[in-house]
C-alpha cells in the first residue's frame, strides 16, 4: 500500500481553524484575561497548552464555556500566544518578549518559553 502524504495538510487544517476562530464558528469557550475576552476552541487550547490541558481534562471543567485567567496575565501576551496556537507564528519583539515568556510559563507552554528565553539572550547579546 502507498500512503500519499499531503505535506501541507497540517498547516491547511490549522489555517482553517484560525478562519473558524475569526468567524466565531464552533468556538466553545471564552477566555477572560484582565477585562479582555478571547473566543477559542477548547481542543486547540488543550492541544497547545499544558495549563488548558489540566483545566479541561478535569471532568468538572470539561463543559465550562467561560474561564477567567489570573489577573496578572497580560492580555497582549495572551493574544500573541493564542495567535501562535492558531498560526505557528510567535510575534516577538523587545517590548513583549518578557511578558510573553511569563505568560508562556503560566500557560505551561515550555517550548515557547524556551524560545522566548533564547530570543532575549540573542537580543541582549547584540
Amino acid at each position: 500500500d502507498d500512503c500519499i502524504q499531503f505535506t501541507r495538510h497540517a498547516g491547511d487544517v490549522l489555517l482553517n481553524f484560525n478562519r473558524l476562530r475569526s468567524r466565531n464558528i464552533l468556538t466553545d469557550v471564552s477566555i477572560q484575561v484582565d477585562g479582555q475576552l478571547f473566543r477559542a476552541h477548547k481542543a486547540i487550547l488543550v492541544a497547545c497548552s499544558g495549563f488548558f490541558y489540566s483545566v479541561f481534562m478535569d471532568p468538572e471543567n470539561a463543559s465550562l464555556s467561560a474561564i477567567s485567567l489570573d489577573p496578572k496575565v497580560d492580555p497582549k501576551a495572551f493574544s500573541i500566544l493564542l495567535d501562535f496556537m492558531y498560526t505557528s507564528c510567535l510575534n516577538l519583539n523587545d517590548t513583549v518578549v518578557v511578558t510573553t515568556l511569563n505568560t508562556a510559563i503560566y500557560l505551561q507552554m515550555e517550548h515557547v518559553a524556551n524560545t522566548c528565553h533564547r530570543f532575549m539572550k540573542s537580543r541582549s547579546v547584540q
Binding site: 490541558y53 515550555e110 524560545t115
Partner: peptide, 21 residues
C-alpha cells in the same frame, strides 16, 4: 508580515498529549 524577519524554529513547539492518562 512586512518588515518582519522570519526565524525558523525547527524544534518541538507544544507539549505532547499522552496516549492515555
Amino acid at each position: 508580515y512586512e518588515g518582519v524577519n522570519t526565524i525558523k524554529e525547527m524544534g518541538r513547539s507544544i507539549h505532547e498529549i499522552p496516549r492515555q492518562d
